[in-house]
Amino acid sequence: MTGALEAVRDRRSWSKVTPEAPTHGELLPLVAAAGRVADHSSLRPWRLIELRGPDRDVLGRAINKAEGHKGASTKPLRAPLLIAVVSSPRKSSKVPKWEQEAVASGVAHMLSLLLDDAGWGVFWRTGSYTRSKAVAKAHGLKKNEELLGWLYVGGKPGRGRPGHRKPVDASRFLSRLPKKDDKHQ
């Protein structure tokens, strides 16, 4: 079994993390590696935004504004580091927007695997407010960009992994093309 297979198979979401977080310098090689996902025409239609300290309060106010509430949401305070995942499509006659958004999602997932493998707890959070004007403005998004959510990153609490996760039954999800005489229901 390879290290990559083991890392992917053992991946977990850590909904609760401790106050430690990787530094900007520690993130750079992980982001560089995550950026190696399959990317038709090498457009790199994504970007990431680090949110630390008071940036999380700014986001909390934007979330509450998007939800029609006053004050600041405490959701962004659940981790010391949030990494906003932004789909930033490029003009291309060959690569449609949906494919470019898939690349950005791939970068986020790859980065979450790399962070987990480096010993950090990670949870990818989304919400209806990810596409709100207030949250987009707080992140400085351009007109063509969309926020796909945030990787919440911090230390892994305790020594062990959280509870058992049921394995995926691959035979339910992997098939062949149907033969002409096969009937689908």
Rank of each mutant, 00 (worst) to 15 (best):
L177A: 14
R47K: 02
P89R: 01
P167S: 04
H109P: 02
T2L: 13
A32I: 09
G3H: 06
P167W: 06
K91A: 15
A79H: 01
P76D: 02
G149R: 01
H184E: 14
L148R: 11
P89C: 05
W120Q: 06
P162I: 10
V85T: 03
G149P: 00
G71L: 11
Y152C: 04
A170Y: 09
L51C: 02
L82C: 03
L59H: 07
W98E: 12
P167N: 07
P19H: 11
A104G: 08
G158N: 10
S92T: 03
V168E: 06
G60W: 08
A34F: 04
P80C: 09
A66V: 02
I63N: 01
K137I: 03
V135L: 01
G68P: 08
Q185M: 10
V135R: 00
A7V: 15
A7Q: 13
W124A: 02
K137W: 00
S88F: 05
A32Y: 05
R52H: 01
L111E: 10
V95A: 07
T18Y: 05
K94Y: 10
P96E: 02
P162M: 10
A4N: 09
D10H: 14
S93G: 12
G25D: 15
K179V: 03
M1W: 10
P76N: 05
A4V: 15
R172E: 07
L43D: 00
G163F: 11
R172T: 08
E50I: 01
S112W: 09
L48I: 04
K70H: 11
A21Y: 01
V153F: 08
R56M: 03
A102Y: 03
L177G: 10
K97N: 13
H164I: 00
W120G: 09
A102L: 11
K143E: 13
T130G: 07
T23G: 15
R90F: 11
V58I: 02
D169Q: 06
P54F: 03
G140T: 11
K65A: 08
R176G: 06
D169G: 01
H109R: 13
V168A: 05
L114T: 12
